[in-house]
């Protein structure tokens, strides 16, 4: 028997029976016998024989290759401890931090990254004992520290929506608000703008995406939202010109 009990993109809660039969239980589900149930609050996604639920909330689970934003919480003898919002703290070893050869006896590692610094790193390794290794070497902005700006958090599962198809959503927000934005796959987003108002507007747009990620027609609504505020900012003399709607392609 092969049966799916829910519609695609249907909102489900933990314990909901999703499908029965020769399906594979993807993320956000568990299998018991031939039945697949949801384990989270989220949207159902059935592709071929894979049943999964895209969570609307939940902790960040690292995957090798992810680019993340993190905050340095400790400086050790030969590396750093970094909070990336995962259940486990991550480590960055000095040889993964920079191309330069560092003499540990002579170098104060705090000069590279200090406690409180915001970094942009790649997940280099994540093993079965939950050791997370980061790498900033070869990352854009040399991995940081990212100066100024602010960090906001979105639900990690909503990052793809925030980036949009081919980067469409985030590019639009950046262009229209004239801000620099780095989205970590851990849901941490770094934003730096030319002034407070535009920075706040970009953050508001990002949080709107986070809140309404499960709804239709989001890109247009976000654009409208930003444009409305931009016109207001122009009237108040904060900005000189409202950029053209599409923004220019980079």
């Amino acid at each position: 028997m092969r049966k799916v009990f829910v519609k695609s993109r249907e909102l489900v809660v933990p314990g909901t029976l999703l499908a029965q039969g020769p399906f594979k239980a993807g993320r956000g589900t568990f299998k018991e016998g031939s039945r697949i149930y949801s384990t989270v609050v989220g949207l159902v996604d059935v592709r071929g024989d894979l049943v999964r639920v895209i969570p609307l909330e939940g902790p960040y689970m690292p995957e090798v290759g992810d680019s993340v934003i993190g905050k340095v919480v400790d400086v050790k003898f030969s590396g750093w401890t970094v909070d990336i919002g995962a259940p486990y703290q991550a480590s960055l070893r000095v040889q993964d931090a920079t191309e330069e050869r560092i003499d540990l006896m002579k170098t104060d590692l705090r000069k590279i990254f200090d406690i409180g610094d915001v970094i942009y790193a790649k997940i280099k390794g994540y093993n079965e004992v939950n050791q997370i290794d980061l790498m900033t070497k070869g990352m854009p902005f040399r991995g940081g520290p990212l100066r100024g700006g602010q960090i906001v958090e979105v639900t990690p599962s909503k990052v793809p929506r925030l980036i949009g198809k081919g980067g469409s959503m985030i590019t639009m927000i950046k262009k229209l608000t004239n801000t620099r934005i780095i989205v970590g796959q851990n849901g941490w987003v770094w934003i730096s703008g030319p002034n407070d108002e535009l920075e706040r507007l970009a953050i508001a747009a990002i949080m709107k995406v986070n809140r309404e990620s499960h709804t239709q027609g989001l890109t247009d609504r976000v654009k409208e939202f930003i444009m409305g505020h931009l016109r207001e900012l122009k009237e108040r003399g904060v900005i000189e010109e409202v950029p053209s709607e599409g923004g220019e392609e980079s």
């Binding site: 809660v13 933990p14 314990g15 956000g28 568990f30 149930y37 384990t39 989270v40 609050v41 969570p55 609307l56 909330e57 939940g58 902790p59 639900t155």
Partner: peptide
């Protein structure tokens, strides 16, 4: 727990 996204077999 569900709001925190902790995976659960049931509510």
């Amino acid at each position: 727990l569900a709001d925190a996204g902790i995976p659960m077999r049931d509510i």
